[in-house]
Design a protein around this nucleic acid. Structure first.
Lengths: 220, 220
DNA sequence: ACTTTTATTTTGACTCTTCAAAGTAGCGTG
DNA sequence: CACGCTACTTTGAAGAGTCAAAATAAAAGT
């Protein structure tokens, strides 16, 4: 069985390799895992010996087939646990990440399957992050963001990329949660601002940076 | 924060000190924790330095106030998680111990409180073991066993002490679960057998040893 | 091309938890 | 009271995961 540390390393390699399609840098990993770079080198060498990652010294690391399988299983646990905490225990979605960080290493496949059934086999977690299937498939659909979509158009929020408690609280306050409908009123590149009109309630203004963290789907 | 190992040592000191009212022997701890005796000595010395246990060399160990507080909190997590797994996820009660063993170290107080509320603040877990309150109170009511109670009398099962998967499966098969009503038909000391008649279904015979693991309450 | 900066790796050390095996204290029996 | 059994403790070593700081390789600037 993989230790907690191993599971965390693999999970973060997976998360960091989304987007930047090739190798994950050691520094990025060190940052994400909150350890010093030397520790990452040590650990990655061990994981490479176990056949879980492929390490190209001085360049970076990528998951092997086995490593990816394990990483997806950890991610599945994380996201299903988050969904449970929000949907069943009604916890604040800005706090569940921390909790899931611990629980993802303690939960068995059997419990996970039952949780999955209890929740109705959700496709995404409360932040809109896709939940890998038991077979290790994960949706990789590409969406636009509030910083890039066409203006004067109705869109539906599908995912919040930035998941710091502060940002999530901000988003919740304005009901910017997956499923929410919005009209994109204006985007001003000079001022770096986007203006939105929710279906109900008053207009929302936010920076392009923030807007770039919110994935949306054109509606109709 | 206490590590998993620390939590486990404290929990087992607590469990082993139920009944044998004074000191817990190092050997008993080694057995319960499945480590060699030398390891226990090492760890207990460390816990004594932290003020969590009181160690009387060559005689045994007992919890301090702080140690007991922590141990009760772990036990509360364990038993509430078991209750959740059985009552909500409908898992087999013979398997939940293993699962809870892991989860008890990963669950936060906040999640625990919500779980407790979801379950309706249960007083006991599915095996009838009392669940410590958030304030660290634990019911220590004394019950008779099927091996000691008066014959020709109706009793109600309140707790199963032996919790190996095999014994629990045996108990479940005969519906010997907390809440079940029984008539104690006969006890034969020579043969070492007890005969029971459930409210519904055919008579059950079991050894005195097995009967001694089932706590009951006289009914009416 | 040479130098500076930055990212990565190496080295040595430390903590935590464990084991195996050797040593020692306590206890009961004769 | 000495003997021997059992329980406990000590000692030395190991693996996992980490850090700090020195060494090195790659990338970027001038």
């Amino acid at each position: 069985m993989a230790t907690m540390a191993v599971e965390n390393y693999l999970k973060h390699v997976l998360l960091l390799s989304e987007g930047g399609d090739g190798l994950v840098s050691m520094g990025a990993l060190a940052g994400a895992l909150e350890v010093v770079p030397g520790t990452v080198t040590t650990m990655i060498k061990a994981l490479a010996d176990e056949g879980l990652v492929e390490h190209q010294p001085r360049h970076g690391v990528r998951l092997t087939h086995d490593g990816r399988r394990l990483a997806l299983s950890v991610l599945r646990k994380h996201r299903l646990v988050e969904t449970f905490l929000v949907n069943v225990l009604k916890m604040d979605w800005s706090k569940v990440h921390e909790e899931a960080e611990q629980l993802e290493h303690a939960i068995s496949d059997e419990v996970l399957d039952r949780l999955d059934a209890l929740l109705g086999h959700p496709a995404t977690d409360p932040h809109g992050d896709p939940i890998p299937t038991r077979q290790g498939k994960i949706s990789s659909q590409v969406y636009g963001t509030l910083a890039t979509c066409v203006v004067e158009r109705d869109v539906r929020v599908v995912r919040i990329l930035e998941q710091s408690p502060e940002f999530l609280q901000f988003a919740e306050h304005h009901r910017l949660q997956p499923g929410a409908m919005l009209h994109v009123v204006d985007r001003n590149l000079t001022a770096g601002m986007v203006t939105l009109k929710p279906g109900t309630g008053r207009a929302i203004a936010m920076s392009l940076t923030a807007a770039g963290k919110i994935l949306v789907q054109p509606e109709r």
